[in-house]
Simulated scan of single mutants.
Amino acid sequence: MFTPEQVRDLVEGRPVVDDFAYGRSDEAAVRALHRTVCREVERRTGTRSRIAWDHYGSGYASFVDAWFFRDEPGWAGRKAGGDRSWQGLTVLLSRLSPYVVFLEGNRSWGERTGSADMPTFAGVDRLTTPAVAEIAPQVQAVVERHGLVRLHASDLGTPLAPDVQVPTLLSDPGSYREFDALFHWED
């Protein structure tokens, strides 16, 4: 999917397309686009969201982690200790390109605790909960309407050259794929 030069640019935090705000490195315009997309996803799917806009609070994430869920049967359940647990659709929106991927994610929280799974290549396109899989086509229509492109595991599974180091906590060194170049987080 990506040339070696594009992989290098992604790993070094540079955009890989020349159009829209990505080519100009206009972070404010990209952020505004992502916010618009997320609001429209909520409206069209009747979901709520939890969105990591701030690089998970520290470090640098090359993406926004947007998680959409409904507080209703098929989405929610009980977790030990009284915390509530939800399945939802995770949409990773690249800050460096118009690309997104879909994963199924689990989040839980209670009065004093909370947890969330982290995105990995193994989760791309694995939408096993029927309620989550049901909204994916609606979400894809929204992202496409705004000029974003959904990529799949088959697009991002190519292993990177052994000498490429990706600054990420989401994969183990030596197992990097194009997914990791596009969607990485360093703390």
Rank of each mutant, 00 (worst) to 15 (best):
M1E: 10
M1P: 06
E5Y: 11
Q6P: 05
Q6H: 11
Q6F: 00
V7K: 12
R8L: 09
R8N: 09
L10N: 04
L10R: 08
V11N: 11
V11L: 10
E12L: 13
G13N: 03
G13D: 03
R14G: 08
P15Q: 13
D18F: 12
D18C: 09
D18S: 14
A21C: 05
A21R: 07
R24W: 05
S25V: 06
S25D: 13
D26W: 01
E27Q: 07
A29P: 02
A32S: 06
A32D: 03
A32W: 00
H34N: 11
H34W: 00
R35I: 05
T36H: 08
V37R: 15
C38E: 01
R39Y: 07
R44L: 15
T45Y: 01
G46R: 10
R48K: 10
R48S: 09
S49F: 03
I51E: 03
D54M: 13
D54R: 08
S58K: 12
S58Y: 03
G59D: 06
G59H: 01
Y60T: 15
S62T: 11
D65I: 10
A66D: 01
F68L: 11
F69W: 09
R70Q: 14
E72A: 14
E72W: 10
A76C: 13
R78W: 07
R78H: 10
K79L: 10
A80Q: 13
G81F: 11
G81H: 08
G82P: 00
D83I: 10
D83W: 15
R84P: 02
R84V: 04
R84Q: 14
S85Q: 13
Q87P: 09
G88N: 04
L92C: 04
S94G: 00
S94N: 00
L96Y: 00
S97M: 01
P98G: 01
V100C: 04
V100E: 01
F102G: 15
L103W: 06
L103P: 06
L103H: 12
G105I: 02
R107V: 06
R107E: 07
W109E: 12
W109G: 10
G110V: 00
G110M: 14
T113R: 14
T113N: 15
G114W: 07
A116E: 13
D117Q: 08
M118R: 13
T120Q: 07
A122T: 07
V124M: 01
D125V: 03
R126E: 03
L127G: 03
A131E: 02
A131M: 01
V132I: 02
I135H: 04
I135R: 11
I135F: 04
Q138S: 09
Q140M: 05
V142P: 11
V143D: 11
E144N: 10
E144G: 14
E144M: 05
E144R: 08
V149L: 15
A153L: 05
S154F: 13
S154P: 06
D155W: 01
L156R: 04
L156G: 06
P159A: 05
A161W: 08
P162G: 13
Q165D: 09
V166S: 07
V166Q: 06
P167M: 02
L169R: 13
L169I: 13
L170H: 02
L170R: 05
P173S: 12
S175L: 12
Y176D: 05
R177Q: 08
F179G: 03
F183W: 07
H184Y: 01
D187N: 12
